[in-house]
Design a protein around this nucleic acid. Sequence first.
DNA 1: CCGGGCCTGCGG
DNA 2: CCGCAGGCCCGG
Length: 277
Amino acid sequence: MPELPEVETVALTLRPQLAGSRVRRVAVLHPDAVAGLSPEDFTRALAGARFEDVSRRGKYLLFSIRPAGGEPLRLVFHLRMTGRLVCVPAAEEAPKHTHLRFELDDGRELRFVDSRRFGRAYLLPHADPPKGLLGLGPEPLAARFRRTDFAAMLAGRRRQIKALLLDQSFLAGLGNIYADEALFRAGVDPKRRACDLTARETSRLFRSVRAVLREAIAAGGTTIRDYVDGRGREGEFAARLRVYGREGRPCPLCGATIERHVVAGRSTYVCPRCQPG
DNA sequence: CCGGGCCTGCGG
DNA sequence: CCGCAGGCCCGG
């Protein structure tokens, strides 16, 4: 589900709610939700600990946690397709598919809810970090990430540009929605080989990636079905998608009919006129 | 590079 | 009932 803008919004909305809050106890309702650690060890390590900060790297959520005694912990979440993290009053009935509950000492709790159960929590250093976290590519919104960096990354790459954009070790945080939206804004066919893009196309794609991510964050992310932020609110960006999920509807720029293809094994939406092969 | 697997839910 | 879904890993 969540891509960079959604994970960023979850971090932004959880940060003020959690900073300084103390965990009274943790309930593990579904052991598979915790990677590499028994529910008992997970619960024991976090009891009495204090949340300090929430941040994001790629599609990973990072919680800085200070236990009652001992070294700081890092709690990492990947929400995959349908994972949600919300902070709510503990008295509220927990929805179906609630796998983890972090009860705070002020009557609220942080919940991890995930119907498809692809999402995972990793508690460092007790468990190994998720494999994908260390190998992540650059953050597309980092100030130090420049158009020239992006051009250098594309040079000599013969893969389809969409496959490359989805590769988290190439660039961190893009998923199926924002890859399609960025390619549309840049006027680039997703099937093109990365190394075949002109300098002008590379430049447009660089700007498009950053612009669409920034706009989506400003709108609180895209809710197609499951996504909500750390307060349980839906994002507003779905109304501003230009091609994603819009097969058969007119292109907002030229009126041609938007098509769906499969590229890199994923549903891919393009305007055949604005993104010529 | 592709396809399958992981799970559940939804829409056609 | 089947196909499909915002992600990622693995094996062939």
